[in-house]
Design a protein around this nucleic acid. Sequence first.
DNA 1: TTCTTTGTTCCGGA
DNA 2: GTCCGGAACAAAGA
Length: 262
Amino acid sequence: MPELPEIEIVKRSLIKMINKARIIDIKISRKSKYLILHFTKKILLIHFGMTGKFLVLNSKKKEIAKTSFYYDLNILPKHNHIYFFLSGGKTLIYNDVRRFGFMKLYNNRKINDVKHISKLGPEPFSKKINISYFKNIIKNKNVNIKILLMDQTFICGLGNIYVNEVLFMSNINPLRKCKKLNNNEIKKIILNIKLVLKIAISKGGSSIKNFNNTDGKSGSFQQLFKVYGREKKFCSSTPCKGIVRKINISNRSSFFCNKCQK
DNA sequence: TTCTTTGTTCCGGA
DNA sequence: GTCCGGAACAAAGA
């Protein structure tokens, strides 16, 4: 782990090499849960971990600390880690309470060759996600469907919350062995993956604990969760009177209805 | 003090 | 070597 002397060297090196340098061009893309900033000669790969967020403030450098912006939105400036001071007076801030997020800067090269990206499976909206792809993979897999959908080499971009929702919408128990699923169930899973992600995007995402867009505003999709976080509550699909159970699968909370997700 | 949270990685056993 | 389940790790708040 780098300690004080190493960081001091980095600081001096950065001042020597890129102090006063300006970013002159930038494109932005997404792969799975990674945000990718494409500069003219560099690529910045960003993962938000659990609580990472970007904020854009109209304030200039000296005004940042005293703006009431943070307090109105329940964001603490003590968790600001990176400031990008931009021409025109705006500031891009990276704020991360848990600090599980990271940024890595690469020389310009094919982003698909980067370690974090190269092993990822197809994107959820890709045409590669179809019944034959599923059947091909699951015939040799002994894991349950929850584990399969969480496996980023199988399909990328799905996390615990959305996998819970997808399985609920598909009436499939998270512990079902994936190789036992029939065609109809696979179809439902594929459809619901695309559906739940589209709806969540249209609602501005979910704000379980800590997602904000760059205005500092929360998304609203968490109000539409049908099963995640609803332990001991009635099943939200009518007229089912089942109760939502919570179990642990591979150290992650899994919620399911005891009646309509047999 | 312990538990929870997420995505990712690692390790041991089969 | 591969597969799978479980644990560990990061940090902070409840």
